[in-house]
């Protein structure tokens, strides 16, 4: 039986589109890991592998005028928003053709033309900025929503609380998306956070909040639609906690000695990619050929991205002095 819209909440084309986003993210990240191994990428490299269902569940629901501010684990968000994988990879390579002409790197991806207003590498630093983007939306009446993405580490920062308070007080159209992957670097959430459920923290500020299984792209999508609609309708912010897991270390420098192997095994069985693939096949939402085509296309795209990056020039020495001030 082919899947109907009612059974899964999305039509066939949309479902395949979600799979496509997740596959492209993973494919990009795996290519990054490979290129890091070849010393083509420097600095810190934080991979999003395992968390793809969160980006794919939320970001395609945004409209063109909406904005995103994210953290340093932002490649997946950028891919989901439709940034060019070639220019992103070139940025990671530090090349002149990169999204920031090689001056930002992996943690600082920007594409203002797509409302992708940055990866922020200081934990919590994007949250105050999101309130300002929300304020501007209300001030100018553009109805744009700001999606503010952060990790569980940011929840313990003062900026989290300051931003929640202001966003609720001034009814700012911000969707706060917490990607709770259970760890801040190598430290488990329970070791550094006194509360029980982070999603309850919205209550103190009268921000409607929901927790969702971040390994289930359809579940994320369903809640995200409500969150975005809430923010866009003028009712103020929404707090969405996606519970997920990162399969790789914090960054490429992480040996993952702190990981519980049994726990990791449980989460690996919940890997959003093979699971969603199986679901699509079972429900006959996509043929094996269609699924394989998505995967092959993604692999080719990311191979091309790496080739483009590798063939791109380094920025000239003078580029160092550009863009410090606007004339």
């Amino acid at each position: 039986m082919a899947m109907t819209r009612d059974e899964m909440g999305v039509d066939k084309a949309t479902a395949l589109g979600l799979y496509d986003v997740m596959v492209r993210i993973r494919s990009f990240e795996e290519k990054c890991a490979e290129m890091y191994g070849k010393a083509k990428i420097g600095g810190f490299l934080h991979l999003y592998i395992g968390e793809e269902a969160v980006a794919a569940g939320v970001i395609p629901l945004l409209e063109a005028q909406d904005t995103i501010v994210s953290h340093y684990r932002e490649h997946g968000h950028a891919i989901a928003r439709g940034l060019d994988s070639k220019r992103m990879m070139a940025e990671l390579f530090g090349r002149a053709t990169g999204t920031s002409k090689g001056k930002g790197g992996s943690m600082h991806i920007f594409d203002a033309s797509k409302g992708f207003l940055g990866g922020y590498a200081i934990v919590g630093g994007m949250m105050p900025v999101a309130t300002g983007l929300g304020l501007a939306s209300n001030y100018l009446g553009t109805k744009s929503v700001c999606l503010c993405i952060f990790g569980d580490g940011a929840v313990n920062q003062g900026e989290f609380h300051e931003s929640f308070n202001l966003a609720s007080l001034w009814k700012l159209p911000v969707v706060f998306l917490l990607e709770n992957n259970g760890f801040g670097m190598g430290t488990r959430v329970e070791r550094v956070h006194a509360g029980k459920e982070m999603s309850h923290l919205g209550d103190a500020f009268q921000i409607p909040s929901e927790q969702v299984d971040g390994m289930d792209v359809l579940a994320v999508r369903e809640v995200a639609a409500r969150a975005i609609e809430h923010a866009r309708s003028g009712k103020g912010p929404f707090f969405l906690e996606a519970v997920c897991y990162r399969f790789r270390g914090h960054s490429m420098a992480d040996a993952m000695s702190y990981r519980d192997k049994a726990e990791e095994e449980v989460w690996r069985r919940r890997d959003p990619l093979p699971n969603f693939r199986r679901l699509l096949a079972e429900r006959r939402a996509a043929t094996e050929q269609e699924l394989a085509a998505v995967e092959e296309r993604a692999e080719r795209e990311m191979a091309d991205a790496a080739a483009f990056a590798d063939a791109s020039p380094n920025p000239p020495r003078e580029a160092m002095y550009e863009h410090i001030y606007k004339e």
Partner: peptide, 19 residues
């Protein structure tokens, strides 16, 4: 509010958006 970080950050976001 007496919250200097979000006060400035809110200004940054609003400025980015053209205000």
């Amino acid at each position: 509010p007496i919250a200097e970080s979000v006060l400035v950050g809110c200004g940054v976001g609003a400025a980015m958006a053209g205000l």
